[in-house]
Nucleic acid binder design. Structure first.
Lengths: 165, 165
DNA sequence: TCATATTAGTTGCATATGCAACGAAAATGT
DNA sequence: ACATTTTCGTTGCATATGCAACTAATATGA
């Protein structure tokens, strides 16, 4: 193989085939998924992805601090801060100062916020189901396991820091 | 299960567990990967991800139009336009008007551009290898296949359009 | 042939992003 | 008790993004 390859391409010792390059493919898949989902969040509920993650976290955990939410949703703290401000102004979440540590504030969904969460959650789950419906149940498990292993490993390759919005 | 679930949470009919939500996990993994890789592109070669995709495409295909590159790299045409401008100013790629259709321009790597590509490609491949090294060869194949199936399916769920940068 | 539609690529604009600096509050260490 | 560090959250700033409008060129069709 070195022979035939050498004659064809003297210069490029290594060639990246973008379509086969895993980081690229992961990004494309994630973006496709994200965009499709974001359409639901945005068009039907006026939520950005960070806002959705905040709502989802509070829907899941009742009340949390902004810091918790950032860690849970793997977002930058400034991203969370802005999403929280917007959601508060829309009356979807409420802040309550933590008397034990007045640096932080406890956040929770308002009545209206919970209504949106409860309308949105089933749609998100339905989307997920449609999305993975090309795979068998067994394949879905395998995929989930592979993603987990890779994510754990990737955290080591990428020093520290948060991830997009 | 409906019984126990009902007593615990009267309100939320469905709960999204973010950590188990596939679109979310895909995004986190893709972002982790992307950021780690982008660090190499940026710190060592001053390239953004869109710029890298342009260079990679031209490294792979010799010469292409901006439109081809956008399709190949799944990027918005304005993203490609800007990346191409930057790369041209840095002298890494050259434009040549297509005489048969003067709307478009054929792009190719300059000598210097190819040098960067050839320095970068092995590093990108090495990164990929490190990245997937937690998986066995068999698992890597399975993952690739699952991603392909999901991507094909996702394109149907998400109407049309390009994907981020 | 000429009017209309489509396509390639650019750019202004509004928005979103991460980063770094900041203020306030709490933790740490002497 | 006091100085130093660390932590939570906000915000100014520079940059990146997609979208829509635009120009120039080509294709289509009457």
């Amino acid at each position: 193989m070195t022979q035939t390859a050498a004659k064809k391409e003297e210069l490029s010792s290594a060639t990246v085939i973008l379509e086969k390059f895993l980081p690229y493919r992961l990004n494309v898949l994630a973006s496709l998924t994200s965009n499709a989902l974001a359409q639901i969040y945005a068009e039907r509920f006026g939520l950005s992805i960070p806002a959705w993650r905040v709502v989802a976290t509070l829907g899941q955990y009742e009340y949390r601090t902004a810091r918790d939410i950032a860690a849970h949703g793997v977002m930058h703290k400034s991203t969370v801060s802005r999403a929280v401000s917007a959601l508060e102004q829309r009356g979807l979440i409420a802040r309550r100062p933590n008397e034990d540590d007045r640096r932080e504030e406890l956040l929770e969904l308002t009545e209206e916020g919970r209504e949106i969460y409860e309308a949105l959650a089933p749609e998100a789950l339905a989307f997920e189901e449609r999305f993975v419906s090309v795979l068998t149940a067994e394949e879905q498990k395998v995929l989930a396991a592979l993603i987990d292993r890779l994510s754990g490993h990737a955290r080591l390759l990428a020093p520290e820091g948060e991830v997009e919005g």
